[in-house]
Design a protein around this nucleic acid. Structure first.
Length: 645
RNA sequence: GCCUCUUUAGCUCAGAUGGCAGAGCAAUUCAUUCGUAAUGAAUAGGUCGCCGGUUCGAGUCCGGUGAGAGGCUCCA
């Protein structure tokens, strides 16, 4: 007999070889039906795997992350089975569970699987799922596993097995389909009740663009049809928040083929919004001791040879432009840091002068592959809210903290709560990707880790994600469709100061090398605004929104009073417009609502007589008439509160 | 850059099998002067992304190319 301890700390004595499923059945049939997998001593296993020694057991259901994973992983197998039945001879790459669903990479051979095939595959999956196929785990020697796939002619699986350690390898069999797989799986296909194949895409084998491109099918499954419906509805809602759609509707930005792809055009409302964000940050930075600088949009190619950007990105950049007579070569500015280094070099600094903080809303241009461009989040010309801090090694910690404070202030003012702080370090096996000495890298990396640890931020560490000149701390925020984007970034850099021979005089009267911190709290104005649009669905905070108030006269008779209200609001810097169209009030309200104007002031006979305005709040409806001065006072208070962070 | 898909009026979209291009909204004009999410009527608006081919004839079929979408690779 062995002892099983359950999460509520109760124990059960059961015979050796009992499965998690047996335990579940013992508790209740209902529970057993819901069990997808089991956590045995912290390890996730099949629910039908025998337990042979004392163990802590947690039964995993749809409510658990690991339960969903097992379900989706098994769904990937089910899809593969369906595909193999429909298109004999296809080969398979990998098919994992992901955050929302699963995918499988397929080499369709001479078939050509397209979007139109998805419904067919989907219904085959439904048919197979109904057969309640069990997932049977099988341990086979490596040699035998290799033979199986060699015979099947699946070179992808052969490659995967080749790389596994010698010994036994696990296969899972469900219905007609056998797959190399570590598991775990759900007991049978019966919990897979609702199936949706979402999209189809090309994906390089093993993520290597030099290797064959396989067909990747994305899908998701649920134990209940209702859950699938809700998920699809959620996706639809998310698509409505897409910044490309809202940006167009609210006239924030546009693109033009004539101008060029990836080159955003900020329309008046977008420009006003962006300027407001910029002056908000400028104010904060001014208080924090930053100085604004300005640099041109191009720089001599030698500047970027000195910085190392040319060697690193020269071929994958916009190519240099040449002067007609002298043959001088210039590059579109891909980064502001080299310019700021030269500004630092324009003057002699003592340790007493440091830190020096040069800030610039610097527009940079980077060649991005055409398939990469995406709305405002991935563009070829964008403006960074950049700054470079030149400081002594002793000041790094404090300065870095100051930067984190600024980022937090901004996230708070804009109500960004779901961000991930990511420390990006070198990939130690791939040293040629980076410039600078190991010693400097070690210094910089440990400095960042120390600071982040001290700051109390929740953070994750990613290796191989560092910039080529230094490690960084990035703030990642998700868009409406769950894609993660980098916004704020802070980078410690010991390398550029060396390359540009930056110096300051220490108290010992010797020359010393300053340390540079690169930082951009928004990241880029384009990307930040894109994410902001999706987070707010276009309902920006009052202080930021392009039009705060729209005055809606009931008819032309009240235009006079409307003009008076407008000039009053204007005196108090409240951004308002009058809807002078010859339309009914209902129409004017509807259009203002759709444009997400926070406040509508309805003005008719009553209001003109009593010197009041009838307020309608966007999304909330009529909230009654108040004297115009009172409205102005309330607005001012609200805006001040929003900015008071 | 690669894979799949899309591209028709300012916007959203219809246009089997090739036979002179259509709707709604927006715009303009006129009427209406109206109380909390669309007043009515009339008018104007398109070398169907671009280049080439097949055909008596191409928005529709074929080839190329631009742009957009979803992924992959990349991202200073």
């Amino acid at each position: 007999m062995i002892t099983i301890r359950l999460p509520d700390n109760s124990t059960k004595e059961v015979p050796k070889g009992t499965t998690a499923m047996d335990v579940a059945r013992d508790i209740s049939e209902g529970l057993a039906r819901n069990v997808l997998a089991a956590k045995v001593n912290g390890e996730v296993n099949d629910a039908i795997q025998p337990i042979n020694k004392d163990a802590e057991l947690k039964l995993l259901t749809w409510e658990d992350k690991e339960g969903k994973e097992a379900m989706w992983h098994s769904s990937a197998h089910l899809m593969a089975e369906a595909v193999e039945l429909l298109y004999p001879g296809v080969k398979f790459g990998i098919g994992p569970a992901i955050d929302h669903g699963f995918y499988y990479d397929i080499d369709p051979g001479h078939h050509n699987i397209t979007k139109d095939d998805l419904p067919k595959i989907e219904s085959k999956m439904k048919e197979l799922a109904k057969q309640k196929q069990e997932f049977v785990r099988e341990e086979v020697p490596k040699k035998q596993a290799l033979e199986y796939y060699k015979e099947k002619g699946d070179e992808y699986k052969v490659e995967l097995i080749d790389e596994l350690e010698d010994g036994t390898i696990t296969f899972y069999k469900s219905g007609e389909f056998t797959d190399l797989c570590r598991g775990p799986h759900i007991p049978s296909t019966s919990p897979i009740k609702a199936i949706k194949l979402l999209s189809i895409a090309g994906a390089y084998w093993r993520g290597d663009e030099n290797r064959k491109q396989l067909t990747r099918i994305y899908g998701i499954t649920f134990p209940k049809k209702k859950q699938l419906d809700e998920y699809l509805e959620m996706l639809e809602e998310a698509q409505k928040r897409d910044h490309r759609k809202i940006g167009k509707e609210l006239e924030i930005f546009t693109f033009s083929q004539q101008v060029g792809s990836g080159l955003p055009l900020w329309l008046p409302k977008g420009a006003a919004l962006r300027e407001r964000l910029e002056s908000f940050l400028k104010k904060i930075q001014h208080k924090a001791g930053y100085e604004q600088v300005i640099s041109p949009h191009i720089g001599n190619v030698n500047l970027y040879k000195t910085s190392g950007h040319f060697q690193k990105y020269g071929e994958d950049s916009f190519q240099t432009i040449k002067t007609p007579n002298e043959g001088e070569e210039f590059m579109l500015k891909p980064m502001n840091c080299p310019h700021h280094c030269e500004m630092y070099n324009a003057k002699q600094f003592s340790f007493r002068d440091l830190p020096v903080r040069y800030a610039e809303f610097g527009t940079v241009y980077r060649y991005e592959q055409s398939g990469e461009l995406h709305g405002l989040t991935r563009v070829r010309g964008f403006t960074q809210d950049d700054a470079h801090i030149f400081c002594t090694p002793e000041q790094v910690k404090n300065e870095f903290k100051g930067v984190i404070d600024i980022i937090m202030k901004i996230f708070k003012a804009l109500n960004f709560q779901d961000y991930v702080a990511q420390v990006s370090l070198r990939d130690s096996e791939n040293n040629e990707k980076y410039i600078g000495s190991d010693e400097n890298w070690d210094k910089a990396e440990s400095a960042i880790l120390d600071i982040v640890e001290d700051s109390g931020l929740d953070y994750i560490v990613e290796y191989g994600e560092a910039a080529f000149y230094g490690p960084k701390l990035d703030f990642m925020v998700k868009d409406a469709l769950g894609r993660s984007w980098q916004l704020g970034t802070v980078q410690v850099d010991y390398n550029l100061p060396e390359r540009f021979n930056l110096e300051y005089t220490g108290s010992d009267n010797e020359k010393h090398r300053p340390v540079m911190i690169h930082r951009a709290p928004f990241g880029s104005m384009e990307r930040f605004v894109a994410v902001l649009i999706e987070h707010t669905a276009g309902k920006f905070p009052l202080w930021l929104t392009p039009d705060q108030v729209r005055i809606l006269p009931i008819s032309e008779k009240y235009h006079n009073y409307a003009e008076k209200v407008l000039s009053l609001l204007d005196n108090y810097d409240i951004r308002a417009q009058i809807d002078r169209r010859n339309e009914k009030i209902g129409r004017k309200i509807r259009d203002s609502e759709l444009k997400k104007i926070p406040y509508m002031l309805i003005i008719g006979e009553k209001e003109a007589e009593n010197k009041t305005v009838s307020i309608r709040r966007q999304g909330e409806g009529d909230i009654g008439a108040i004297p115009i001065q009172e409205f102005i006072h309330d607005m001012k208070n609200k805006i001040e509160n929003e900015l008071n962070v």
